[in-house]
Amino acid sequence: MATEEAGNGFNIHPMDQFEIKSLFGGGPIEWYSFTNATLWMGFAILAVVLLLVVGTRKRAIVPSRSQSVAEMMYGFIHKMIEDVAGKEGLKFFPYIFTLFIFILVSNFLGLLPTSFTTTSHIAVTAMLAMAVFVAVTVLGFYKNGMKFLGLFWVSSAPLALRPILAVIELISYFVRPVSHSIRLAGNVMAGHAVIKVFAGFAGALGVWAALPILSITAVYGLEVLVAGIQAYVFTILTCVYLNDALHPSH
């Protein structure tokens, strides 16, 4: 890849934007180092505070714009949990809302030019997905005991097929966190990389740069959509898994 670029005179490094850098002092990145990932996670917290705490400080009966957005998000997630996982799922509303708002805000912050997208990293999304996976599995066994294994025993299928289906169900259960995390990181990363590639073309094409710039605009619009949709998808899948833990019967 590197040689190809050098041959064409292009100097495109679409993946550089995802690099984790230590912001103070440099050197090797220890687990406690303050990196660009740390910075943008901090910005995410700041954005959430601005929107959900500062934005709602008036507690107005007739909401301001920011309060209205906060209320819409609250109602959106609340209804999603209730619809997908039932009333018992509402106990986990703060956790699910934390996941949703973190992913949503990180996705949107990542769309700011020159910013760093924390959700484009598999380490972050895998952590989120694993947290959901472990929590849901533990919850399933805690709530239902061994009956939770009924999730893998498709009682509506013919008896002979059930062991085979159980194996498939088991595999699919353990693949959940993988797909859950890669879907999010992959979508976000791919969009950002594509924008960067187009930007590299624009730098090399002179007058014809208008074409890649138009493409960047289009892809950016798509990315805004993806940022919202992936946060939604991650959250609704969490609700689906939660529903499985609460009501494991097939």
Partner: peptide, 26 residues
């Protein structure tokens, strides 16, 4: 850079910190 495992502990640590702070605020 996503597969540079040397940055994983750092990211995971700060993610956990972020999520805990967010959860408490929320």
């Amino acid at each position: 850079p996503q597969l540079d495992f040397s940055t994983f502990p750092n990211q995971i640590f700060w993610l956990v910190v972020t999520l805990v702070i967010l959860y408490l605020i929320l």
